[in-house]
């Protein structure tokens, strides 16, 4: 009994001895401790573990044995890895600019439309709400050869030869990218619209009084003032395209990653190495590389954000 009571008094005394400011600090840290602990436990700890596993030959079944940097050496010599790396970069460097350009064009014109504005905006937003897997399967059927494929049916109706789309090593990556861009478009349009609305109309009025052309207004006022919006969308969609998975996996299941790995992104390679081949060490090494790539891209973009 006595121990507990003493402890209680001591704690009460400690608490009472604190200034109000200190108490606030303790409270703040008390609340912050929950997400910090949560993050440390479910984010940082597994991340650290992934670094460790990448130096082992763990195959899920046997005890992991330390192999040093052998997994990374194997990665550098693996032609599939370089193909996959190239694909991932292509998703990024085609996907991000194309989707942003499209979204901006649509938002810019939609901003001026008064007639059924809300309805049209909802139509653009709809694909964003659709499950990626379901959408990928519908597009997969669009791309099929004639009796069932919509695109090829249209082509052959007009007398053009059929295209292999997903069954080609060159056409399959853009074919997979198209629905991915389309699905993200609605979100980007809405963000762009919000950004456009946030620009004070006084600038436009002043410009118009000065008799400036539409093109100049766009270049000198609209785009510079949209910079924060654009940077946010660039960061957001870059990360999205670097992590593309659902569309690829669903559109090419059967031969995941397309013919001769033509559409396979890094995330899919990691998934297959880990959960189909159970080569955990090698998969962890690939994860480390993806982590470093994402980190580099994010750092560069954060730097761009800073010198606003």
């Amino acid at each position: 009994m006595t121990d507990q009571a003493l402890d209680h008094v001591a704690r009460g005394g400690f608490w009472r001895g604190l200034s109000l400011r200190r108490k606030q600090v303790v409270w703040a840290w008390g609340f912050l401790a929950v997400p910090i602990l949560f993050y440390a436990l479910i984010r940082f700890y597994p991340t650290g573990e992934a670094f460790y596993i990448s130096t082992t030959n763990w195959n899920l079944l046997t005890k992991p044995g330390f192999v040093g940097l052998a997994n990374f050496k194997r990665l550098l010599g693996d032609p599939v890895f370089w193909q996959v790396f190239r694909n991932t970069v292509l998703y990024l460097v085609i996907g991000t600019p194309v989707s942003l350009l499209l979204a901006f064009t649509i938002a810019y014109h939609l901003d001026r439309v008064r007639f059924m504005h809300g309805f049209i905006r909802a139509l653009y937003f709809l694909p964003f709400l659709t499950t990626a897997a379901a959408m990928a399967w519908v597009w997969r059927w669009f791309y099929q050869p004639v009796p069932i494929g919509l695109f090829n049916q249209v082509l052959s109706t007009f007398g053009f030869p059929q295209q292999p789309f997903l069954r080609s090593t060159t056409q399959s990556l853009p074919s997979v990218l198209a629905p991915a861009i389309w699905a993200g478009l609605g979100f980007q349009v809405v963000i762009f619209l919000a950004g456009l609305r946030a620009i004070p109309t006084t600038y436009y009025e002043a410009a118009r009084i000065d008799g400036v052309s539409d093109g100049t207004i766009l270049r000198r006022i609209t785009i510079p003032l949209l910079r924060p919006t654009i940077i946010f969308l660039v960061v957001f969609s870059s990360i999205g395209f670097l992590r593309i998975f659902d569309q690829v996996y669903n559109m090419t299941s059967g031969d995941p990653g397309g013919p001769l790995n033509a559409t396979k992104p890094l995330v899919l390679m990691i998934y297959q190495t880990a959960f189909s081949s159970f080569d955990m060490g090698y998969a962890a090494a690939q994860t480390v590389v993806l982590f470093l790539a994402l980190l580099a891209v994010s750092l560069v973009q954060l730097r761009l954000l800073r010198d606003r």
């Binding site: 069954r167 031969d255 013919p259 001769l260 790995n261 189909s276 081949s277």
Partner: peptide
């Protein structure tokens, strides 16, 4: 899974 992928690639090299 790995050996299956090799076989699929083989067919695609010849067919595509």
């Amino acid at each position: 899974a790995g050996q299956r992928q090799v076989a699929l690639d083989l067919a695609n090299r010849v067919l595509i």
